[in-house]
Structures are given as C-alpha cells and as structure tokens.
Design a protein around this nucleic acid. Structure first.
Lengths: 143, 143
DNA sequence: CCACACCCTGAAGCTACTATAGAGTCAATG
DNA sequence: CATTGACTCTATAGTAGCTTCAGGGTGTGG
C-alpha cells in the first residue's frame, strides 16, 4: 500500500508517517519505480502500535524504548512494565498539578462575579497581588 | 534596576525577560549609556503579572488579551471574566482527558503483573490490539 | 493530451522557552 | 592604570511533535 492508505488505516496524516520515518520510529519503506513509499502489514502493525502509544500520551522516547524492548523476543517484560509504571506516574503527577491549578483559578474567579470597571476587577487585582513563585522543573513531558 | 535584578524579583531568568520583550508582552526598556536595559516599578508589576498568569498555565495569547484589557481603564471586566472562564474550562477539559487516560493505562497495566517473556506480555498485546482512534483536535494549549 | 489526485523533498512555523557563542560594560581590587 | 569577575548585549540554534508550505514529480481516467 502507499502512504496515504497507511495513514488512513492508522488514523494519522501522511506527514506524520514521513515524520516517524525520519525520526526512526517507523522503518523506512521500500520504494516503487516512481519513488513512492511502499508499505506492508508489518508497517501497519508498527504504526498502529505507535499511534496507540501516542493516544496514551507517551513520548517518542518512551515509545522508542517500548519498541526496542518488544523487538527482543527472548527478553522478559519487566522493563516494559517499568516504562509503563513511570508513565502512569507522569500522568498522575500532571493530574495533581492541574487539580491544584483549577482550585487556584476558581478561587481567583470568585473575586469578580459582576461586570464592573477593570480597575475594580478582583481577578486583575488577584493576578497582580499573587506571590510569584519560582517555576519548578517538570518531570513529565505532559504539558 | 538592571535585568538581573528584575528577573530575580519576578522569579524568572534573564533570558525569559528578554524573550518577553521580543514577544511584545513586556514593553521595551530604556537603555543606559552602555546599552543595558533599565527597568522601573511599572516593569516589575507587569512582569509579575505575566509570571503569575504563566504560573496558572495561561498561554501568551491569553495573557496578551488580559493585558490589553487591563490597559483600557474605562472598559468593563466582562471580557476578562470570559478569558478566565475559558481558561478554567481548558484546565477542566485536560483533567478529564488525563483521568480517562489514566484509567486506560491502569487497565492495560493490569494485564501484565509478572515478569514474563515479551511475547506473552499483556501490555504489548494490549497496545497492539487497541482500536486506534483519530486524534481529536485539542482545544487547549495544555499539553 | 490534460486534468486531477496523489506522492516527493526540504525548509519553515508552532509554543514558551533554554542554551550557547562571542563580545561589550562596569565596579572593585592590586 | 590594568586586570579580574560579575554582569550584560545580540544573534542563533535547540527542545517536542508535529503541521504547513513551496515547488516539483507520478499515475490514472477521459
């Protein structure tokens, strides 16, 4: 199959497929006489795997690790479990951050219930008065 | 004050300050004879406002909007409330996404409790078998 | 033979910074 | 007065994971 069809079955764009090839996530396809990429079932499987990982918000690094682990048939899957556990921890951490954020936002929002002059707007005052805190380094790739 | 001191009181780096100036979030400073940027209290206030917004994960676009609204003293703050409500909705949406994600990840994780050969690993099988879904456009800038 | 859908490469754009190189400024010290 | 060291300047490139664009080539139906 050609790249358009592959992209279609894997629910992504043609550009994304080419990008994955350039990144080394997807092995390079063979080419037709006219220099079109030619794909088979193995490519479909791999691309679907990658897209499923991305749907779970894994980074390319995590996916690369999983793929290389999966490619060693003799190995055990302890390392795979570890990648997964760490990723779940990332997601959890980000959820906690966002929940806290929402609490802060909601409390600010309460300060301005009415339409009034901006000079009196409790939100703006709150934003100006907040204690500016140093941004702590993020351990996750989840924005 | 010079840029280093400004960065210090606003809890960010010198590079970030220069970046905000280039982006137009922070007005350009006056310069000393030696071409060093020179800041006053108004810059401190504005930069702290920006950093506080960023601590609440607002995008530069959202901050730009807030700043320009705040700069119109005669105007009402309905538009400000709207920006805020929308941002809270973004955060909420992202929390929902991540909670769902975590459920998916946890259910996958349960499929492989033991160290075993990768061929038998339930996680890998699950990742390969998942229904690949089209990535829906994200309405938020929160990763 | 032509239109049109599809494919190709390479480079730039997106967000919000961070990092680096190479040079200039300024206050204090010897 | 020269030097040291902390600070500043500009310009450029890198980060993640794509998307978009420009400027072409390929292949098929009428």
């Amino acid at each position: 199959m050609k790249i358009g069809e592959l992209a279609h079955v894997a629910q992504c764009t043609v550009e994304t497929v080419r990008y994955y090839e350039k990144e080394g996530l997807l092995p390079a396809a063979t080419r037709t006489a006219g220099n079109f990429r030619q794909y088979g079932p193995a490519h479909v499987e791999r691309l679907r795997f990658i897209r499923n990982c991305r749907a779970l918000d894994m980074s390319h690094g995590e996916i690369r690790t999983l793929l290389s682990l999966a490619d060693q048939p003799g190995a055990g899957c302890g390392a795979i479990n570890a990648v997964f556990d760490q990723h779940i921890a990332h997601v959890d951490e980000r959820i906690q951050e966002l929940v806290q954020l929402k609490a802060q936002l909601s409390s600010l929002r309460k300060r301005c219930q009415a339409e009034q002059a901006v000079d009196a707007c409790g939100i703006l005052h709150g934003l100006a008065a907040m204690e500016t805190e140093a941004k702590h380094k993020r351990h996750t790739h989840l924005g």
